[in-house]
Structures are given as C-alpha cells and as structure tokens.
Design a binder for these strands. Sequence first.
DNA 1: GTCTATAAAAGGATAGAC
DNA 2: GTCTATCCTTTTATAGAC
Lengths: 215, 215
Amino acid sequence: MAKTTTAKISETAATGDAPTGKRRAIVEAAARVFLTAGYGLASMDAIAAEAGVSKQTVYSHFGAKDALFEAIVQGKCAELMAPVQLPGVPGQHHKTALGELARRFLATIFASANMALFRVVVAESGRFPELAAAFYRAGPATAVDNLSGYLAELDRAGAIGVADPTASAKLFFAMLRGDLYLRRLLDLTPEPPAAEIEPLVRQAVAAFLAAHAPD
Amino acid sequence: MAKTTTAKISETAATGDAPTGKRRAIVEAAARVFLTAGYGLASMDAIAAEAGVSKQTVYSHFGAKDALFEAIVQGKCAELMAPVQLPGVPGQHHKTALGELARRFLATIFASANMALFRVVVAESGRFPELAAAFYRAGPATAVDNLSGYLAELDRAGAIGVADPTASAKLFFAMLRGDLYLRRLLDLTPEPPAAEIEPLVRQAVAAFLAAHAPD
DNA sequence: GTCTATAAAAGGATAGAC
DNA sequence: GTCTATCCTTTTATAGAC
C-alpha cells in the first residue's frame, strides 16, 4: 500500500538501520519464529513470510541462517536482562532491599519472553557456545556481580556475615529460582502473578538472612 | 555375518523385545542422535545409519519420528533419575544424611547424559508437553516427595524446625543446583568432579540447617 | 523383518530483473 | 534493496523385492 514507485528516498544509513523498516520487521519476525520453533525447525521461508518480505531480502541483510540466529539471540540477551540491577534505594534496610531485588529478579527471569530465550539458548548451547556464554554473562553473571558487591558492603557494615560474597550471591539467586524455575523451563506453568512469587521471596530472604547472621 | 537364511528362529516376542537386537540398536542410536542434535536437526537417516539398519526398519518399529522421540525420552526419564532416592542409612545423624543425599543428587543431575536429556526436553517442551511433564514427575517431583517425607520426620522428632516440608525440600534442592546448574545447562562447564561439588554441599546443608533451627 | 529404491515435499541458498 | 523464480540438497515417509 502507498507506493513510492521509482522515487528513491535516501533514508538508509550505510550499514545497519531501518531501510524502510524491513530490517526491523525481519528482526522481529525472526525472533518470534526462532523463539517458538527453535533453531532446527525454524525455516527462512517462515521468517520471510512472518516479516512480510521475500526470502532474498532476509539473505541480503543477514547472509545466512546461523548469522541471523546469532544476531537475534545476542540482541535479546542485551535487552532482556536490563531490569536486574542493583537494589536501588541507598538508605533502606537490607532486608527490604534484598526483597526488592528478589521481586525484580523473579519478575524478569520468569517473564515468558525471557524463558523462551533461555530455552533456545540452552537447546543450541552445543552448536552456538558463544551465545550460551553471552547469555550467562549478560544475565546470571551480571546479577551475581551486582549482588556480591552489595553483600560485601553489608558485611563490612556488620549488618550480615558473609565470608564469600560471590558464593552467597549465587546461593541467594539459586534459592529464588527454586522449583518454580524448573517448572517454567519445562513450560509446565504460566508466568506466575506477583501473589505467587511473594511467598518464595519471603522464604528465600528469611533463609538467606538466617544463614548469614552477623559475627 | 552368520546368516540364518530362511530358517525363522522364533525369538521375537509379539510386541516389544529384541527381534535380533535391532530394536535395541535403534533405540540406542536414536538416543545418541536426538540427545546431541535435538529433535529438529536429528534425521531418521542419521538414526538408521548410526544403528546400522535401514531406514525402513526404523519406521517398521516406531512408525514416525515423533513417536520414536517420545519412546526414547520416556525411556530415558525412567532410567536416569533412579539414583536419587531416600537418604538410605536409617540411624545416621540428619546432617550426615542430608549431605549424602546432596552428593547423590548433584552427581545425578550434573551427569552429562542427564543434562543432555534435560536440554532436549526443555527445548521441545512446547511441542511435547507430555514429555516435559513426565520428566518433571520422574525427576524433581520424586526427589522433593522423598525428601519432604524425611523432613517431616525430622520435624516431629524435634531435630529441625520445618513448617512446610514440601517448600523446604524444594528450597534444599534449589540451593544445591545453584549457579553451577545454569552453567551446566548452558554447557559452559564439564561434569564437575567430586572435589568441586563438596563446597556446594557444605554451603547448602549449613544454610539449610541454619534456616531450619528447631523450635 | 529387513533391505534397496523411490516418491513427494521442504529447506537453505542463489541468479537475475527492476 | 527488493522481488520472483529456480537450483540443489536433505528430509520424512512409502513401495515392493526377498
């Protein structure tokens, strides 16, 4: 609809960005297809059709199926883990701060888009080891780094007792993932509402603090 | 080799078991191919070749690709989770018993064969929801059931304080999986030796007991 | 039951016009 | 840059001989 006929509007930046929006359409379509069908069963035909462009256009932009897959997954890794940052408010009590972090963490990792990404990365970890490493760095490793710094502060302040901040941070997130993470990975249960994660947060924070009493 | 020519030895039970051992060969070959390539990229040709039989023989036994996949995964689910049973020795101290259970649990879930199975089940959970459910029941659910019964006993005996045995059992296994489970899922690290899981066991048991003090 | 073809379709990738 | 049409390979599944 709305043909521009022969007039060539120069809206294309040399390398990357939206020629007419087709590249963006391809990226979004590829994300949908790859994250639902998986790498093996996703077809370039299906991606082109979903994007509303020809297959050749897809190849012009990304060259090959594996390159397109890598581009999609790398992009998703960068964007989806952003919310899991440091506790936030500086003056608040550490129990409150940990609870806040826990809620944001669980909301992020249990989100359907994030679960779909993780499933695909896990499935293709053998064929695309760099993607698995990128996912781990962008997600779990970043979360642990942030929390361990905060735990070290709390230990210095005498609020809690933490001998190995990194190990304790890993333990904290592990307690939060819990059994529900397995059920989400296996697609046995839908994205849980806030009411359902609240008991998990309480259990994990309480257990963590009990295991890290000061002194 | 060793032709039986026309003589038909009646060693074939009506439905399931080894005609000449070919069915077994197909099952083992299909397991290898499916667990390394994944469902989408695994081909019936590759399975037949790996088994050393013709493709038609594979189809004669299992009918279709998805049926073969289901048979393989169901079989693996049943066999691989067997070692994760109750603590074992009846008279021992609960701290020792939990440590023993923890070691067996981690050795089981971190085993390469088990990780490969889990990756495939996760990847295909959308297309084969029954397999995902079967895996969860045979593995995590069974482990939790066993432990929660033991925890309830310990609580009645006053050894530890457990308000919700199921929730506490889930927490225990969650602490054990920890960060290393993610790294194993993503194939970022090989099967860890006993020396590497020992600190995790100690950390988890200590934290669990600290969080479940009696009274 | 098992094998050697073969059918029928789908997939990744490319050529050439506009 | 984008499209249509096409090449070649692989794939699932089946027919028919032994």
